[in-house]
Design a protein around this nucleic acid. Structure first.
Length: 289
DNA sequence: GGCTGTTTATGGGACT
DNA sequence: AGTCCCATAAACAGCC
């Protein structure tokens, strides 16, 4: 169960050890899978050729990519830079991994493009950055819940959404975005979009998604639906993509759930300096993948 | 031709 | 068992 060699400094080493420590079981399973039956691309089964897949990573690409991007000074990276940063975490056929990461970037609306040169946008020269508004509650629970320290915006937004839900009460003070308190008894944010709520079972999340405010986002649920259905889905693009026709031109994607940003009240400004500028303070106490 | 980004098809695990 | 979601493979388009 040796972790792969690390080449990217202490912080990445620490992070990886967190990954591998908490993923011990999965790491073994993954390795066994590779040994046991995923090593060949094609396998005969009852006369019909079937594709077999190799596993290249133990985490999820969404989480890994998001972390790589958020860990960068400008919170955005080119595809090449992402690949370089994820080298220690993905093992195997480089072409396949590149392909997978491209697909992941391209097909998840939590990743948006920002032109390298806004004055001369080139569709093939972009930075990729994380758009927190594209993160659904399910995605949050699955890929980001233990990376909350680097996504403080989610805390802010979920709270704002809650205030929007029920404005008969005075807004509660904002919870600290970079601290996860163990004391759950006081000052606890308990709205339906609180972190705790989001971390509950899928059934709980399902209930959230059945809220009437979510109906627009639920128009489409499968990425393989008819192309024309895309037009029926409301699309949100971050203010950060100012000057980026490319990002706006990006084909809106169907999502399995709501996006936090779609339900912000009009007076709430989407400020990426607030959302994305917190120093990266990865606290091992909260790091369980 | 290589790189980058998009789309489609499908295997398979997790969940309900 | 059905559905959802993620990972993987592959084909394709556009740019340099």
């Amino acid at each position: 169960k040796k972790p792969p060699q690390l080449h990217h400094g202490y912080k990445w080493g620490l992070i990886f050890s967190v990954f591998s420590l908490s993923l011990d079981q999965e790491l073994i399973m993954t390795n066994n899978r590779v040994k046991g039956g995923f090593s060949g691309l094609l396998a005969e089964s009852s006369g019909v050729p079937r594709r077999r897949y190799k596993r290249y990573t133990t985490g999820t690409y969404i989480g890994l990519i998001a972390y790589a991007i958020q860990d960068s000074p400008d919170k955005m990276l080119t595809f090449k830079q992402i690949m370089k940063k994820l080298e220690p975490f993905v093992l195997g056929d480089k072409k396949g991994i590149e392909n997978n990461i491209r697909v992941c970037l391209s097909s998840n609306r939590c990743f948006v493009k920002v032109p390298v040169d806004p004055d001369y946008p080139n569709p093939k020269k972009n930075f990729w950055k994380v758009d927190e508004n594209g993160i659904t509650p399910k995605m949050f629970r699955r890929h980001f819940k233990y990376l909350i320290n680097i996504f403080p915006g989610l805390s802010i937004q979920t709270q704002q959404v809650d205030e929007c839900e029920d404005n008969s009460y005075a807004p509660e003070p904002l919870i600290p975005v970079c601290k996860v308190t163990e004391n759950k008894s006081e000052g606890k944010f308990t709205g339906p979009f609180s972190i705790e709520s989001l971390l509950k079972s899928d059934r709980e999340v399902k209930r959230l998604e059945e809220h009437p405010h979510y109906t627009d986002a639920q128009l489409g649920t499968s990425k393989r639906k008819n192309v024309y259905e895309y037009e029926a889905v409301k699309c949100y693009y971050p203010v950060s993509a100012v000057g980026s026709e490319l990002a706006s031109a990006k084909r809106p994607r169907l999502s399995s759930g709501p996006q936090f940003g779609q339900f912000l009240p009009p007076h709430v400004t989407y400020d990426h300096h607030v959302l994305f500028s917190s120093p990266l303070m990865y606290d091992i106490r909260y790091a369980r993948w």
